[in-house]
Design a protein around this nucleic acid. Sequence first.
DNA 1: TCTGGGGTCCTAGGACCC
DNA 2: TCTGGGGTCCTAGGACCC
Length: 410
Amino acid sequence: MYLLFDCNNFFASCEQVFRPDWRHRPLVVLSNNDGCVVSRSQEAKQMGIAMGEPYFKCRERLEQAGGIACSANFALYSNLSDRIMQILEESLPELHQYSIDEAFAIVSQRSHCDWLDECRKIRHKIRRWTGITVSVGLAPTKTLAKLANELAKKKPEYKGVLHLPADCDSVLRRTPIEDIWGVGRRLAPRMHGLGIRTAAGLAAASLDWLRQRFGVHGERLALELRGVSCLEDEPVNTRSQVMVSRSLKEGIEDETRLREALCGFVEKAARILRSEALMASQVYVVLRTSRYAENSQLYAAQQGCLLPHPTDDTRLFVKAATELLKALYRPGYPYRKIGVLLADLQETDSVQPTFDHPQVAPNPLMQVLDKLQREGHQVHFANKATEPLWRCSQASPCYTTRWADIPEAW
DNA sequence: TCTGGGGTCCTAGGACCC
DNA sequence: TCTGGGGTCCTAGGACCC
């Protein structure tokens, strides 16, 4: 059986933990550049503010309702996430974190009633210890556990915990197809067109027919809904790419300013790479104007290159990225997004030496640089932009990760 | 005026191999 | 005139997720 723990309104809830005066009010957390709504309190949801909605479209409504908007504060969210995951790990035999705010546990042996009871206790503990409310779904497959979790969140009568057995046809009949995990904005209309409107309809469809039209993905969806588990248990533990990119607050045409922004992103990406003891042998640069620009002002391009050998040296990445930007850059466009992707990652330990590069080891200069930065020293490559080029107007303090920001109680 | 960032997996098609 | 069969690897693009 799978147990899925998922935090309610996670980013919004994190903000409310340290601001009791923000509870029971419409609150939204904004994406980078204060562009889109990425998390909403219950009250904001009730106002009809949609997930992913551009902030400028709901700003006035929110302000009129006395609501609050915060810029995303990932230092805070990651830290609270770590605390919650730690509680789960201590309480459960096999846990796989799936995202910043959810984790699957795989359990067996005891009855689902025992586990329901256990989940209620864990839920209570997380609430007491972190201030965050989680919902729990229990089911024989991950897809059903997702559905159980959604229902546990929405329907107060379940009090945050729900078990769905393999034969839950009556529930599936009431579940629209677009509410199923793995059915997105493309698949849903296609399925509707073929007469599949509910989860029950999908579960009942012929596997061969689904395979033909939707590939292995469609077949797996149906099996999972029937209670036959067919998704991977083991998450891929080493990532395959590191990306750092931002939308810029204003269109930038100047190549030098773009390069400075890019170099800052390369530096950050390389630091992430080293913090996970990885090396990369491919570098990509992406550059684009606003997606919403008129055709004559629209430009989007991406180009990559292969490095002579896997490395974790920021200087080599900067050199490659700078050359790629030179190749991609076309004058006359107001660029709104730039970023770097490090790919073809390998664990430093398992990189093969070659005749040209017999010594594979973390770059010592980079190690020193990382150490200095960890200690709070400001040491950077001189080609990096010094002013942030994106907006982040109203981030909350880092209550749990920065000494100066620790809240006072009196 | 204003529209995020960072991932994964699958598939089809091309290049190449014996 | 007639031109196989069975593979692997890589990449781009499309779909999904939070």
